[in-house]
Simulated scan of single mutants.
Amino acid sequence: MSDVVGVHGHTEPRFDRVRDELAAQLAAGEEVGAAIAVDIDGDVVVDIWGGHRDAAQTLPWERDTIVNVWSTTKEITALSVLMLVERGLVDLHAPVATYWPEFAQNGKESIEVRHIMAHTSGVSGWEKPFTVADMYDWDTAIEHLARQAPWWEPGTASGYHAQDYGHLLGEIVRRVTGKHLKQFVADEIAGPLGADLQIGATPADDDRIAEIIPPPPLEIDVAALPTDSPMFKTFTGPVAEANAANTIPWRRADMGALNGHTNARALVRVMSAISRGGTVDGVNLLSDKTIDQILDEQARGVDLVLGVPLRWGIGYGLPEPATLSYIPDDRICFWGGWGGSMTVMFPRQKMTVSYVMNKMAPGIIGSDRSEAYARAILAAADE
């Protein structure tokens, strides 16, 4: 147990400043509940949590509390596809239609797997009418995506696949393995690694899931956007509803872009596969060759959906100082979730960092809180 009131778990002494930063954010009311973990080559040097898992602040955030991590889920989905690449079952440069023939409709026949992985496919959302509830129905969601045309020339620019990333890649996983994405993650990732991580959540887990506390409205005035722009079409196809994450239908769905339920400890264990050369405690997921492909830049520039400069590798963001100055411009890959959750992989240092929370911060990429924790962790790691 920590000697800081309200923060539990352990930190190696040089990382005590991380624990102090979490305590300060909780005391200031910036956090309601959160967890942070850091793994360095298999040594968990930070594993802390604190605060409350409900908005009323009556239920403590406990060691095994899990939370919807929004787009941090995309990291798990990308890892699933990369594992199939590793096994020779998927070619990143092959057309998606090689595995999912129906996808080759309406000008999508040349879209490659890597284009979806790097958010450059042009299929960054669903054509309206389409609702959040429609995302819960796998067959309906997939049929819509197979029918529609891309919203820009595939491969020419990134446009964040905010809500459909998991459906697009998940259908490739399903066609290749016969398993839905959530089952593949359970059987091939969470199970072998003993990680408390899943796409969606089971009824047995409902009592330990932290309540999502929605953020302030987006800074983007969606109504003022051109209706034919990828930004408008993505943010309205469908309109994201933060409170939906607190509902049972959301938890039971298979949405590899949005509804991963896990904690920081499990995320660093799973994603350390990238930082540690592909193998976690004897369980091999990737090779150095596949990890190198993650770091192969696919797109760089102002993202057509998020409207900020981004760099994309295969399945993960790469450092872009113009947008996230606190992530060093090095051999690093990362991504995060709406509200501020984040997992960052440092293969050179064999370090993996993760932060999750229930009180969502403004914005879409990172937050003031994730920056504060990242800076504290990096300062300690450099000592």
Results as ranks from 00 to 15, higher is better:
Val5Thr: 14
Val7Asn: 13
Val7Phe: 15
His8Pro: 04
His10Pro: 06
Thr11Gly: 11
Thr11His: 13
Glu12Arg: 15
Pro13Leu: 03
Arg14Phe: 04
Phe15Gly: 06
Asp20Thr: 08
Glu31Phe: 12
Ile36Asp: 08
Ala37Trp: 14
Val38Cys: 05
Val38His: 15
Val44Arg: 15
His52Leu: 00
Ala55Asn: 13
Gln57Lys: 15
Thr58Leu: 05
Thr58Asp: 10
Pro60Cys: 06
Arg63Lys: 15
Thr65Pro: 10
Val67Trp: 09
Asn68Ser: 14
Val69Cys: 15
Trp70Glu: 02
Leu84Phe: 08
Leu84Met: 06
Glu86Arg: 14
Gly88Cys: 05
Leu89Ala: 12
Pro95Asp: 00
Val96Leu: 02
Thr98Gln: 04
Thr98Lys: 05
Tyr99Thr: 07
Val123Leu: 07
Val123Asp: 08
Thr131Gly: 12
Ala133Leu: 04
Met135Asp: 10
Met135Thr: 12
Tyr136Met: 03
Tyr136His: 13
Glu143Val: 10
Ala146Glu: 03
Ala149Gln: 11
Ala149His: 13
Pro150Ser: 03
Pro150His: 06
Trp152Ser: 09
Ala157Arg: 12
His161Gly: 06
Ala162Ser: 06
Gln163Ala: 10
Leu169Glu: 01
Glu171Val: 04
Gly178Thr: 01
Ala190Asn: 07
Pro192Ile: 00
Gln198Ser: 15
Pro203Asn: 01
Pro203Glu: 00
Ala204Arg: 15
Asp207Leu: 04
Asp207Cys: 08
Arg208Gly: 09
Ile212Cys: 04
Pro214Trp: 03
Pro214Thr: 01
Pro216Gln: 02
Pro230Asn: 05
Phe232Tyr: 15
Thr234Met: 02
Thr236Cys: 02
Ala240Arg: 05
Glu241Leu: 05
Ala244Cys: 03
Ala244Ser: 10
Ile248Asp: 05
Ala253Leu: 05
Asn263Met: 04
Asn263Arg: 13
Arg265Ile: 02
Ser275Cys: 07
Arg276Val: 05
Gly278Tyr: 08
Gly278Pro: 14
Thr279Cys: 04
Thr290Lys: 13
Asp292Val: 03
Ala299His: 13
Arg300Val: 01
Val302Glu: 08
Asp303Phe: 07
Val308Lys: 13
Arg311Glu: 04
Ile314Asp: 12
Gly315Glu: 00
Arg331Asp: 07
Cys333His: 09
Gly336Gln: 08
Gly339His: 09
Ser341Lys: 12
Val344Leu: 00
Arg348Lys: 15
Lys350Arg: 15
Met351Ile: 00
Met357Lys: 15
Met360His: 10
Pro362His: 11
Ile364Met: 11
Ile364Asn: 13
Ile364Asp: 09
Ala372Pro: 13
Ala374Asp: 07
Ala376Leu: 09
Ala376Arg: 13
Ala380Ile: 01
Asp382His: 13
Glu383Tyr: 12
